[in-house]
Design a protein around this nucleic acid. Sequence first.
DNA 1: GTGAAAGCGCTAACAC
DNA 2: GTGTTAGCGCTTTCAC
Lengths: 363, 363
Amino acid sequence: MPNARRSVFLSADTEGERGNGVTLADVALAADVSLATASRVFSHPQLVRESTAQRVHDAARRLAFRPNLLGAKLRSQQTRILGVMLPTLENAVFAECWAGIEEVSLATGYSLMLVTSGYDPARERERVEYLLRHRVDGMVLTVSDAAQSAVLDQLDSEAVPYVLAYNQASPAGRRHSVSVDNRTSACEGVNALIAAGHRRIAVVSGAFMASDRARQRFAGYEDAMRAHGLPPLPPVNLPSHTASHSERIGALMGASAAPTAFFCTNDLLAIGVISDLKRLGLRVPRDVSVLGYDGIALGALVEPPLATVVQPNPDIGATAVRLLLKRLHAGTRPEALSASAPCVTLLPHGLRVAGTVAAPPAS
Amino acid sequence: MPNARRSVFLSADTEGERGNGVTLADVALAADVSLATASRVFSHPQLVRESTAQRVHDAARRLAFRPNLLGAKLRSQQTRILGVMLPTLENAVFAECWAGIEEVSLATGYSLMLVTSGYDPARERERVEYLLRHRVDGMVLTVSDAAQSAVLDQLDSEAVPYVLAYNQASPAGRRHSVSVDNRTSACEGVNALIAAGHRRIAVVSGAFMASDRARQRFAGYEDAMRAHGLPPLPPVNLPSHTASHSERIGALMGASAAPTAFFCTNDLLAIGVISDLKRLGLRVPRDVSVLGYDGIALGALVEPPLATVVQPNPDIGATAVRLLLKRLHAGTRPEALSASAPCVTLLPHGLRVAGTVAAPPAS
DNA sequence: GTGAAAGCGCTAACAC
DNA sequence: GTGTTAGCGCTTTCAC
C-alpha cells in the first residue's frame, strides 16, 4: 500500500516531484469515497450527489490536490490538446493570431502545443509528426502551400481533424480553412490605389513560391489591373522580408516607367520597402505610395500609418479553434462532419487607406 | 486479445483514432521480441543488440508505429515537457526569444507548452497552474516583477525548477535568470546619448510598475546622468505601447526646457514615440534623438534605423532552456544544483547607435 | 448514486 | 541481452 504511506507523510512534503505527489486516490481516501466517485466529481459532476461532491472537493483542497492531466489523457484516449503550427511568430500577424488561439483554447479547457515551421515544408513534416506523437486531438495550422502540401495529405489520410488558418482552401475540396478572401481583398486594395490615380503599380512579394496567399493576392492585383485596362507588372520577389532590398527597389525606380505605387503582399515587407524607398531619397507617399497587407498593429503605430488590407488576425485564430472544436465534438460520424458549416470560412477584411497612400506625383 | 485483432486488420486503417492504433506491443509482436525489448530499442538503444534493434525498427516502420508520448510520460514520471510563460508574443522581443527556446528544446527532445500572461499577475498564477497540471518538468518564464512575484514564490515552495528569462534575478537570491545586465546596458546607452551632446534626456517607459526591467533600465539612466552631473528627469510612464501618446509627448516638447533626447525602455515604445514626434512636426534625429531598448529585428528595418540597446533575444531563450535542462539533469541533489554555474546569467548586450540618434540641435 | 476492477501505452526493476 | 511483471494516475464499463 504505497499510497497509504504517502498520505500519512504528505504534509511533510518531502518528495521533490511535480504536483506534490497527491493523487486522486489519496483524495478519495481522505473523502472516504471510492476512486471512481472522486473521479466523477471532477469529470462528471452531475453523476454524483451534492454532499458527496462537497466532501471530495474539501479533501482535494486540504491535500492541495493537483490533477495529473497525463493520466486522464492517456486513459480517456483524448488529450484535449490542440496542436498549432504557424510559420513564425516573428511576423506579428501570427503572433496576433496566436493570441486568439490561446484565448479560446484555454477558455474551453483545451491545451495547446505550438510549433513553428519557418515556411519550410521539410520542417513542417517534422513538426507535424511531433504534434501527432503527442496525440493532439486536432490541429490549427498555416502551411506554405495548401494546394500541394505533403503535410495536409498526410493529415487527410490519417483522418486527423484540422483547420487551416490564413490558407484559403479551395471551395472544391473538403479542407476546412479560416481566412479572409485573399484575392478579393487584394483586388479591393489595388482598386483603392487605382482610384487614387495610380496606373503603374508593382507588386512586391516575399517568398512568392512558398506562400499560396502571396499568389492569391497577386491574382487579386491582376484582377484589379485588368478590370481597369491596366497592364499587370510581373511580381518582384524578395526572398526575405527582414533584409533590405534597396538594390532591387532602386533598379525598379530608376527605370524609365517607374511604378508610382507598390502593393506589398504583407505588412512587414511593406515597412521594409518604405525604408528602402526612403534610403533612395524618395518620400512616401508624396513620391511613391505603398500599400501593405495584414493589418498588424504596428502598421497603425508608425508615421505615416501604413495603408493596408486588414485581416482580423486574433479572430482568424479564435474562429479556427472554434471550428476545430465543433468538428471534434461532432464525433467521427461523417454526416455530422459535412453537415457542420461550410468548409471554407471567409472572415471580413478591412481597408486602411491612409498614410502611405496618396495620389501619384504630377510627373 | 484485442491487440491481435488490431494488428491483423491494421493495413485497412479502419479506426479514426490518432496514431492509427498501433502500439509498441504490436511492434514487439511483429518483431518477435518482448515489449520490454521493443521499448528499449527506442529509449535505451545501447542496451540492445544491433540486429534485434534492426528487426524492431523494421516492424515499426512496416506498421507505421507512432510512439504515444503520453504513455511514456505517465510511466516515467518525467514529461520532458517544458513550460514557457511569456508576457506576450506581440512584442517581437518575446517572439524572437521563443524561436531560441523552440530550437534548443525540440533539438534535445523536449516538448513545449506556451502560455502568455499579458503582464497580468493574476493571469500569471492561472497560467502557471495550468502548466503545473501538465506536469511540466520545468519552466522558462518572464514575470512582470521577479522581486515580488506570487508565482515565483509558489514555484519555489513547490521546488519546481525554473529559469527566468529577461527578469534579472537578484544576485543575493537563489533564483536562476538569463538576461543582459539591464542597468549597466541602459547606462551605456544613455552614456552614448550624452556623448552625442545631449543633456536633457527623458525616459519613456511602458508599464513601469509592471516591469522590473523598466525600473532597472531607469536606474541605469540615473547612473549615467549622475555620473555626468546631469539631473535625471522623472520617468514618463505610458500605459500601453500600442496606442499613440502624442499628447504626453507634445506637452513635454512644448515645455520650456524640452528634452533633446528620449530613452525608451523598449523598442516598440520607441517606434511609437518616434511616430508621435513626427506627428508633432519634429524630425528624428535632427530635432530630437530617440534611443530604444531590445534590439528587435524590426528596428534595423525601419528608416532611419532605430538606435537601441541590443539584447541577444533568441540566445536568451536558448540559454535559459539549456540552463534549465542542466538543472533537470543534475538530479534533485542540492549540491549538484548549487554547484552548477551561477544563478544569474548575464549575456552580453550590444549598442546600435545610429539612425535615430544624432547631436542635439544647436538651439 | 456509488464501488470494484480493468486497463490506456509505455518504462523500469528485477530475473534469467 | 532479453523477458516478466508491475505499475504511472486516471477514466469507465459494469454491477449493486
